[in-house]
């Protein structure tokens, strides 16, 4: 089940489920079953079918859709014009394994890699490459969309577009030309005992297969594809990077005003 269903009235949802099952499982799988406007009028009448009138069959999960072959057409919808049935590929799309598989075992590695550039979870990352000291919009060339070049992933900006990049992001290896800074001065940076809060724990799932909640704040991190898109780190990538309305299914993990917060917060 996806969160999108919550937005659809129950009657339409039932209808939608019925149709989806009747037509082709993969339709729902790929288009997430939000196509009531494409349903011909005849289908609406077919709601009289005993199967639909009885217990509503649950929609298949994404996993089902990928693994189970498409079912035979439901006789209740036999009269539906063939074009819609044809309109959607019956077999699930082949998806690239390296993206499809979020590789949870590599998540810790990804989190550690991510933490290397940050003082604490939520800090603006330092820049792991030299930065031109004049002008800012150079950053935009690579980081507005994010790209992968030669095995190196350049993440897209995780927040809305802001112009003055160097306001928050400073080069990790220094702004000065190579060799100018004295090694002692650079080494002097190591005398700090601050221990930053670590990356978030995993989000909550309401039941196995449910979309997990977002376990971290989304302020300045609302552009999910920055970390979870195809150019994100292995272990953090989404299995479905072409779906861009992330918060349609993934809710923020903070569900109430936490205890112990002062009244002025």
């Amino acid at each position: 089940m996806t969160v999108s269903e919550a937005a659809v009235p129950p009657v339409r949802r039932a209808l939608q489920v019925g149709v989806a099952v009747a037509l082709s499982a993969s339709v729902v799988g790929f288009f997430a079953g939000i196509r009531p406007d494409e349903v011909p009028a005849a289908v609406a009448l077919s709601r009289a079918s005993p199967a639909a009138a009885g217990a509503v069959r649950p929609a298949p999960s994404y996993t089902d859709l990928r693994t189970r072959p498409a079912r035979a057409p439901d006789p209740a919808t036999a009269g539906v014009p063939a074009i819609e049935a044809q309109a959607f590929p019956a077999a699930p799309l082949p998806l690239p394994p390296q993206v499809l598989d979020p590789q949870p075992d590599r998540r810790a590695e990804a989190v550690a890699l991510r933490a290397k550039l940050r003082a604490y979870d939520g800090a603006p990352p330092v820049v792991p490459h030299p930065v031109r000291q004049q002008g800012d919009l150079d950053c935009a060339a690579c980081h507005v969309q994010g790209i992968a070049i030669g095995g190196r992933q350049l993440p897209r900006i995780s927040h809305g577009f802001l112009t003055n990049c160097t306001q928050c992001h400073v080069p990790a290896d220094g702004a000065l030309p190579p060799g100018m800074a004295s090694p002692e001065q650079v080494a002097g940076a190591d005398g700090n005992t601050f221990v930053g809060s670590v990356g978030p724990v995993l989000g909550q799932r309401a039941w196995p297969g449910a979309p997990p909640t977002i376990p971290h704040p989304t302020h300045m991190r609302g552009e999910c594809l920055s970390c979870h898109g195809p150019d994100g780190k292995v272990g953090m990538r989404s299995s479905h990077p072409w779906r861009i309305s992330c918060r349609q299914c993934h809710a923020e993990g903070v569900d109430a005003r936490p205890e112990g917060l002062p009244p002025w917060m």
Binding site: E38, I83, E84, Q86, A87, F88, P89
Partner: peptide, 9 residues
């Protein structure tokens, strides 16, 4: 719908 059918085919 016609266009979608064409595309899907």
């Amino acid at each position: 719908r016609e266009a979608m059918a064409l595309l899907a085919a």
